[in-house]
Amino acid sequence: MTKMMATRDAYGEALKELGKVNEDIVVLDADLSGSTKTAVFKNEYPERFFNVGIAEQSLMGTAAGLATAGKIPFASTFAMFATGRAFEIIRNSICYPKLNVKIAATHAGLTVGEDGATHQSVEDLSLMRSVPNMTVLCPADAVEAKKSVIKASQYEGPVYIRLGRSKVPVIFNEDYDFEIGKGVEIKAGKDITIIATGVMVSKALEASEVLEKEGISARVINMSTIKPIDEDIIIKAAKETKKIVTVEEHNIIGGLGSAVAEVVVENNPVPMKRVGVEDTFGESGVADDVLEKYGLTVENIVNNVRELVSK
């Protein structure tokens, strides 16, 4: 049985560890500490935890000020409010002066589920990717999430870490080596490459197994850094497998699919398909039902791959 764990839970664990080894780590939340799991840090290091109330602009601005004084602030709230409500503070007060603020945003994507469209951020990767100086991470499972948070704390500069609410399969071992800016080939293949990010990576792996039975050899790449994107692994895939499908729990506009397409078109144009949210808002429902309805399924990945391979 595959172990299941939400990436936000891994975030809480990582913060707890980091708090012990690095006195400069401070954590801020906007009244969602139980949900974002920053409460785990609060319980251990209450003097280094600041709840700013339901005030996301203040959250980001305060984090910026703390960073100017040598602190390493982790600012958390839901992805919708972090990147939407506070976008311009992130841009002007954090990214423009390249301050050492880490934005760990949870409940990203459709898998917020029941809360519905107002809370389902399908634009956050796009927004964060377009701001200069920002590094954008989207870990695939709990192991990678924890490693991302730790690596982000050691990196100097703004980092956006996209985390999820729902439990997702743990696909990596503890010895998995995460590096900012590096995509990882997690399954070999020669007919096509599936590049996936976040919670869709496990589904991409499942899809590749279905395809294998049909005689289609699909390479799977986990692209957990959306920016700076790993151009080398994309170009290599384009050259070797000549077809690419991207998969993300995000609008097909502006996120992983766009980032990969940019690299492909400029370096080695090959046919592509983007699996993701098709420029629409989500709706309430159990996470799996929402994913199903909006096409973020193993079946839809398989269909897109089949279609592209048969062309």
Binding site: Q57, G61, G65, L66, T68, E88, S93, P97
Partner: peptide, 20 residues
Amino acid sequence: DMTTGSLGQGLAAANGMALA
């Protein structure tokens, strides 16, 4: 001491400095 220009953001940053 702080990059500013978009109104309102400086006060929040000053809060962060004071907290630190």
